[in-house]
Design a protein around this nucleic acid. Structure first.
Lengths: 237, 237
DNA sequence: ACGCGATTCAAACGCCCGTTTGAAACTATC
DNA sequence: GATAGTTTCAAACGGGCGTTTGAATCGCGT
């Protein structure tokens, strides 16, 4: 088992050669992004990180626990930031309900910050996260459930006040769609190639992306309740 | 290699015991849904299908080709149906641009049909598809690109006419969001547990789901262009 | 300088993977 | 009913997997 207080390294420990644990986390983040959880082997991972094969099991226990560690390292602070930002907005509004766009900002801005603040890890992480949303593995699903429970609950309350024409159930669905568009968008830069060669490939891609996503989601959330007859199945031909 | 014209089976070949190829495809569809591509082994797959281990390689070549076969079997007809339905709507409209909702219907109705028409395969398939969208594996990405190219291009043209206030580039992004919300929604019934215990667990779940999704997406597509200043990064605290 | 816990390391463990093989079983045709 | 082609089958192949082990190494407190 790893020590509670890790031993210090030799005299020069610069930013380039971090400690083993961080090196593993960084390599894992990027490799899980590139190949997915199952398709990433601990051998390629430890090689990429420049550490011994056994280091993963020593520091994290199992491969699954490593994956959870990859997620928590960034997800925990990001969701906390979301909650704090929402609380701050609510304080500033002093009782009056927040606008839909404002609440969305509280969700998107921390994600946007994350994608830009890190040297490289930020974007990789958001992609890992986007993929994790769609992963059926139980240990991933239950882990995400726990991680998100509080944040989702708070934002649902906020949205309920901002969108009084929606029932609780309708809002649940729409939040589901929001999370879908968000995670998919974060997960798949490549996916854009499905439909276009338009991508300008900027460096601040993600900022532009979220600035386009926000109005789209806000409009969707504010939409009037659907007409039940709209999607009637059309018979043949 | 498999024969061009498969030999006929013994006298009684009822619906319950299909031919080997279909049995493999069905089992693959459901197992890829449950565990993902990488995490599904050919041994559990062939066991579940009640066929010999070597049957997959005999009939499909490799595991990857099997996965592509799983996708094409249903994706090809579904996308063709989408294109045909859109063409029919355009014909009926006679020159006038279609409404956003109408175009969305042409995308969603074939998916909805698929999810209901099959005995069991339909829903499983849509989940496999939703997951495939987020998969980084190159053979999946390029395969989907090809499969979707024509459909996406046609719908983009239609949306461009329906939404003249959008630039081509803006529309590309919004279509991206649409595909995101759609695929995520199709992929993850489980994901709903992230935020609620509301799910009524109906049989015609998917129909209700898409009827809620359509107004949401239509509103998002029709949203005015975003305010560039909206998502400004807020400084600390 | 020594001891001790924390960490690294090379090697091995047992297991399951995707694929291949060659013979057996089957079926349609002559 | 022999023949040729298609499909099934049991068995094996080589290799990579996640994890464990036990010894070597490191770095600090005393």
């Amino acid at each position: 088992m790893p020590a509670q207080r890790p031993a210090r390294r030799s005299p020069a420990m610069d930013a380039l050669s971090q400690d083993t644990k961080s090196r593993i986390l960084d390599a894992a983040e990027s490799l899980f992004t590139a190949h997915g959880f199952e398709a990433t082997s601990l051998r390629q991972l430890t090689t990429a990180a420049g550490v011994n094969l056994a280091a993963v099991n020593y520091h994290f226990g199992t491969k699954e626990e490593l994956f959870q560690a990859v997620l928590t390292r960034r997800l925990d602070p990001m969701n906390q930031e979301r909650i704090d930002l929402l609380a701050r907005y609510e304080r500033e509004a002093g009782g009056r309900p927040l606008s839909c766009e404002k609440i969305l900002s509280a969700m998107l801005i921390p994600a946007l910050r994350l994608s830009r603040d890190e040297k490289r890890g930020g974007k990789d992480f958001l992609r890992v996260l986007g993929r994790a949303y769609a992963d059926p593995a139980p240990f991933i699903r239950s882990f995400l459930s726990e991680q998100y429970a509080e944040m989702i609950s708070r934002f649902k309350d906020a949205f309920l006040k901002a969108l009084p024409h929606l029932t609780k159930q309708e809002l649940t669905w729409r939040l589901h769609f929001v999370m879908g568009a968000l995670s998919y968008t974060l997960a798949g830069t490549d996916a854009l190639k499905l439909m276009a060669h338009v991508l300008p490939n900027d460096k601040d891609n993600d900022e532009m992306l979220l600035q386009r996503l926000a109005p789209f989601l806000a409009a969707g959330l504010k939409a009037p309740l659907g007409d039940t007859k709209k999607l009637e199945l059309v018979s043949g031909t």
